[in-house]
Design a binder for these strands. Sequence first.
RNA 1: GGGCCGGUAGCUCAGUUGGUUAGAGCGCACCCCUGAUAAGGGUGAGGUCGCAAGUUCGAAUCUUGCUCGGCCCA
Length: 994
Amino acid sequence: MRRSAKASKRQNHMTDETAKRDYKDTVFLPKTAFPMKAGLPQKEPGILARWQAADQYEQLRKARAGREKFILHDGPPYANGDMHIGHALNHVLKDTVVRTQTLLGKDAPYVPGWDCHGLPIEWKVEELYRKKKRNKNEVEPKEFRAECRAYAQKWVDVQREQLKRLGIGGRWDKPYLTMRPEAEGQIVAELMKFAESGQLYRGSKPVMWSAVEETALAEAEVEYEDIVSTQIDVAFEIVDAPNCRTIEKSRELGHEVHAIVWTTTPWTIPVNQALAFGPEIEYALIQEEERIDAEDDIWVENRRYIVATSLVASLNTRMRENDHQNLLRFKVLETFEGRQLADTLAVHPMHKLGGFYAKPRPMLAGDFVTTDSGTGLVHMSPDHGEDDFDLCKANGIDPVFAVMRDGRYRDDWLWLGAGDVDGEGKARRRSVINKPFNSSEGPICSDLREAGALLSASDDYAHSYPHSWRSKAKLIYRCTPQWFIGMDEQLSSDATLRETAMKAISDTRFIPEKGRNRLTSMVEGRPDWLISRQRAWGVPIALFVHRETGQLLVDTEVNARIVAAVATEGVDAWDEARAYFYLNGYEAGDDPAAMEGVMLQEKFPRDPDDYEMIADILDVWFDSGCTHAFVLESDEWPELQSPADLYLEGSDQHRGWFQSSLLESCGTRGRAPYDAVLTHGFTMDPKGMKMSKSLGNTVDPLKVMEQYGADIIRLWALSVDYTEDHRIGDEILKGVGDQYRKLRNTFRYMLGALEGFSDDEPLPESAMPELERYVLMLLGELDAKLKRAIDDFDFNTYVRALTEFAAEDLSAFYFDIRKDGLYCDAPESMKRRANRSVINIIFHALVRYAAPVLVFTSEEVWHSRFPDAGSVHFLEWPEVPTVETDPARWANLRALREKVTEAIEPLRREKIIRSGLEAEVVVPESAVPEGFSDADLAELFITASVTRGQVDAVSIARTSYSKCGRCWRLLPEVPEDGALCGRCDSVVSALDAA
RNA sequence: GGGCCGGUAGCUCAGUUGGUUAGAGCGCACCCCUGAUAAGGGUGAGGUCGCAAGUUCGAAUCUUGCUCGGCCCA
């Protein structure tokens, strides 16, 4: 019977003097001061401080001067509020792009920027005013803007520190801000280019309008909420239907025929100007079939109605639910095709008021009419709907501007205008978003009911409706004068802006590719670009319009004066007091006749009174669309150039910055400002649900940094598939932490293994054992894979390849096999030197590979080995040796190794074998790849011995050899447990002698 | 409501033009080691590939519908 290891040990102690010696001191264990525990939250700020003190960004620019450039142009986040997880992901991706390109040896500068103008900041400042009981209208615009500027600057500073803490490297001492005068001037200059090329025009258009804030809102400022509205069915009597026999026949028989429209915005009925039908839709002539106990006698016996056939049933339902007293049902008399309604005329229910209401309302064919809901007939008010506006415009019907800024009808409006009072003399006029005003009992419904035109009205229609994101007030469409950039103007280049942009999209690389579709479909179908806003905090639409002719003044000299002024003084330079100068180039008091070189027109100075000085400002999307002009092309950041290699933002920016930049650049420069566009998805909670403060499922990156460290957030951001939506949560972060520790320990082991590694120790690859050569080949494969991943911006693959290499090829395979040699071989032995040479090569490669990902930890690792060296981030991509080995042979070897470990396991469970070193292995001869000796196999499998036999499967037996007291291997040459093997004996002798 | 995108083990991800028992790493369970030790090694259990039809000899992969989630738009 074999002695158990425990028993033999005890016996050695009792019987053998030499076995008592503890050889631990003679073993070359890894030694390093690099701690296992990271303590990132404490450590990272110190590393940051060192970078800052060393002026890292500037030094890096110098180090890479003259190299091929890679320009990632930062999309400006809005300077409002703390960094959130979306910013963190976005900036980690950007930083990783910059750092990987830098690592590849390129000069990859990064100038961060902020979007500073706009409504959200105005709102914050106004909120502060309200708290102080100040009225914004009493504040000088200049003062108000100064406070907006200060507010934006405050958040720029806050976010800057937060992003720095994340380890984002960049020109933090000089970021670009859209509110710098230089930027504001360039933005005006860009606007002038559109004006000068004839792409800019003033039009009117229904825009999302807040009657509370008294402003048009951008799409991004609109949010949809579920509300309950009043729905009404209104009858418009048809007075002429030249192409519809069905209607005419009925009319000839003495019936009134009414078109029924359905709406959830009763307030638009007073501004109705037309009706729309679907030419492909089938309509029905209907009349009431039964009615019980009609009290309100609006049901005229001889009336017939027109609605879409498929919607008769739903109309019936509304009628019934509307009034339980009057159970009535319509029956279909006849049907006809919608196109027969062409040239039909109806009259407004309030036509008796005369004036605006007297004119017959044409019925127009509209592609947008559906039979999803309503009646298949749509009431049109060009003032208050986009479809309405477009269809009416096409038919020569102009908006009437009946609703004022504050949401009330104009004073002179015939119905519900200022003079409209109820029986008690109270004004009936209210804001059109007022709920009672629209209700079934409100003045509109009452009047329609009285006019016999209200078929149904119920305050029960639940739907999603646009609201202001700030005030939460309901929004309306309201027609207002606005400035546009035309998408389909034929330009001198012989292409329209739309065509130029489409071409630019096809010339752009998209990562992932699906972004191309998205941008294409948006540019393809988008309307003209609305760029004006009626607000205070922004870049002025610094234009003059001749009052008499309505002509936009396009004079390059005037424009140049304005641009120069804004570029030095900022947006406040657009001041009425300066109008004379801008228009004429000299001050009002000067006598042009007395001036030298005076041009003819200057003798007849332009009178500011003849010109309207536009008070609108530019939408912030125009600002940010100009960043390429005032950042990439600017002399202020000489490290940059245009076009950018890459724009990188969230997928929402297809509609935002990617598009505004594209249109701006195509309109002024004929091409995109970028060669490639990378988009990332959004970060969700652990269940894949959107994060929101109200749900309480947000993850605060600042807290994650406090708890785990910035490197963990970075590793997280690079581990997920950023091209899609992805998740974050405690479990996920814990997993990332595990992954981090694995990498960290691999580095720690290498640091320990390389302790005292000197310059004359490395061996050439040619002198290395095959295992070393194989591992170098694996490193070469990894290297190629990582390079490809960088080219593809595929950081997920990058990180995975890196961690799998560290865990599988190094930790579980190579390091495990070579532990024996590393710990126990003589320091000068070739095998140990080869091993350390390879670990050294791997160390230099891995610390570089890891640097763009774990920016802090890699620095810590690097300085742990080379305390006096510069930053790891100055290093370039490693040159890994190219080594030829037969990969298939090694793959087979590793497969066999797995079979062996698998076979050992049952014996381990039965306590027959503990360590693999106690196993004598027999492997099927056929399974052993060419060229490995039995001794090689024993070493690679970390077993006592391997022999090959004519067997089908691997078999294991416990060895009868004794265990070396130093290296713990069980070998035939060891006389008894605790004695030394030959190798250890000579090493120990040498040490003892020394 | 419309357009686009996505739903593969507990987690993060692979799955080439449809083709043998759907893979990896981590985590987990168990075992070993105690000379990488709040580490290291090994083995193993986890998936009706969102659901349902269809095409096909054969579908995670193609088609349709549904469902859940996301972005954008209304």
